[in-house]
Design a protein around this nucleic acid. Structure first.
Length: 474
DNA sequence: TTTTGAGTTGTTCGA
DNA sequence: GTCGAACAACTCAAA
């Protein structure tokens, strides 16, 4: 096989052919293009749920490339070195990522490739705006969502989508029909995902059309009702880059309800923007005072939360939905996170790690922003006094208990009056409906009013500690 | 330059 | 039962 003028398109979180600037440009510049994916950390003994999605998405991408996707595992630099020689690569193309680990890696690779006279071209593919494009008048980055959102709208949300290129000049790879082999989460766990989700791009695209027609017109209200499930469910497709955010914006443009939905897409944008400008927020609070927050360590409570055994029905329903489906409705993400950080005073980073492990859409930037928001330590965070009461939330957003009954079947027989707070129900009523608290269903792990007071007290304590630390320093 | 008002997602208390 | 106020501190943009 003679190869000349070969470009390498390195796929990362852009597992698509349409609206893929790196792939399109590589095909414009080269007579032949090699498509590559490298799974950098194989042999993870306990892979997260999102690896299941990634594996399926890769297989789907390989199908779209008529099998011509070179799949490798292990160190990226070593793989590139070998591939460059083997395939006579003269230039490398990729779409940019904005998390600190990827930036550090890509920077090193760019220098290293340059030293070998290999051209490197990187492109904007993951976001609507490059994070350094949107700044305040004074040249510094936005810290508040709404001004950021307005700035995005003022710039105009691009809906220019690059059509799928002609793929008949891809380099043939050995064994193109081979399955993408990947370490995947435990078989039984993955099985449950397969029952719920189809990670192929076309399915995501179909879901988008369905969402726009059926759900987006009422999205502003219905998105808060977890049982209604009238949300897009596109996050995993967006995270893997099977759909580009520009495609989604373009499809929703001028359709009823688009404003509210696009605002959510801008939140995704803001999350990546914040992580780019303040990479330390990955595990450090944006608000310095929170360095002094008195987080507790309580593995038993953390485990109860993870397993959906807190004895608080709405929270347990959410945590079970998360574990069983790799997905959690947005409102429940807030409710369960608030219970962990506020009532239980457990470190948001423990909750964030669990979400990253269990969510099929596990996205570092979105997850970090969300948790810091709930904890109160982040950019434009929830005020300290906003403590979600899972009973009130249940009565407001799951008034007929549909969602709780779906995921906490042991309580299904209880009347609406008590479904959100079985501990308050008369014992004889519980007995009559076959519920023995502490036996069929746990006693609540925390008394909600006391937990709220403890959270407010912890906040006062943090303030005092932060103030005295400030005095000591000055 | 200074001031002002608003800022994703809530709860409780008291009138 | 309903309703408004209070709950910090800071950022940002417009007036």
């Amino acid at each position: 096989m003679s190869l000349s003028n070969v470009g390498l398109c390195w796929f990362r979180q852009d597992l698509r052919v349409t609206d893929n600037p790196a792939l399109t440009r590589a095909l414009q510049q080269h007579t032949q293009v090699l498509c590559l994916y490298v799974h950098e950390h194989p042999d993870d003994p306990d892979p997260p749920a999102s690896l299941w999605w990634q594996q399926q998405a890769l297989q789907d991408l390989a199908d779209q490339l008529q099998g011509q996707l070179l799949y490798r595992t292990g160190d990226i630099q070593q793989n590139l070195q070998q591939i460059i020689t083997e395939y006579s690569i003269s230039a490398v193309y990729w779409n940019r990522l904005y998390d600190p680990t990827s930036i550090a890696r890509d920077t090193i690779l760019k220098t290293w490739l340059g030293e070998q006279s290999i051209q490197v071209y990187s492109f904007p593919g993951q976001l609507l705006f490059e994070p350094w494009e949107l700044l305040k008048q004074d040249g510094s980055p936005y810290r508040v969502f709404t001004p950021f959102y307005k700035a995005c709208l003022a710039q105009g949300l691009s809906d220019r989508v690059i059509p799928a290129p002609d793929l008949n000049r891809l380099v043939s790879v050995p064994d193109p029909g081979a399955q993408i082999t990947h370490d995947s989460p435990a078989a039984a766990w993955a099985q449950a995902f397969g029952d719920q989700w189809d990670p192929r791009r076309q399915t995501g695209w179909n879901r988008l059309a369905e969402f726009i027609a059926q759900d987006m017109p009422v999205y502003h209200k219905a998105r808060d009702i977890p049982a209604a499930d009238q949300v897009s469910r596109l996050a995993p497709y967006l995270h893997a880059g099977q759909l580009s955010v520009r495609e989604v914006v373009a499809a929703t443009r001028d359709q009823p309800g688009a404003d509210t939905f696009v605002r959510q897409l801008v939140w995704r944008e803001f999350a990546h923007y914040v992580l780019y400008h303040w990479p330390h927020t990955l595990d450090q609070p944006m608000d310095n005072r929170y360095v002094h927050f008195p987080w507790r360590t309580d593995p038993v409570a953390l485990r109860a939360w993870q397993c959906g055994q807190t004895g608080i029905p709405l929270v347990d329903a959410g945590m079970r939905q998360l574990w069983q489906t790799g997905y959690l409705h947005n409102r429940l993400r807030m409710v369960v996170a608030s219970l962990l950080c506020k009532h239980l005073l457990l470190d948001w980073r423990a909750g964030a790690a669990w979400f990253m492990y269990t969510l099929l859409d596990a996205d570092l930037a979105n997850n970090t922003l969300g948790w810091q928001w709930v904890a109160g330590s982040g950019v434009d965070a929830a005020p300290y006094f906003r403590i979600f009461n899972p009973v009130s939330q249940g009565e407001r957003f799951d008034a007929d208990g549909t969602y709780v009954r779906r995921w906490v079947p042991e309580l299904a027989a209880l009347p609406n009056r008590w479904i959100q707070q079985p501990w308050a129900a008369p014992t004889e009523l519980l007995t009559a409906h076959g519920v023995q608290l502490g036996d069929d269903y746990p006693q609540p792990i925390v008394e909600l009013a006391a937990g709220r007071r403890a959270a407010l007290a912890a906040w006062e304590q943090m303030k005092a500690l932060a103030a005295s630390a400030l005095i000591k320093r000055s």
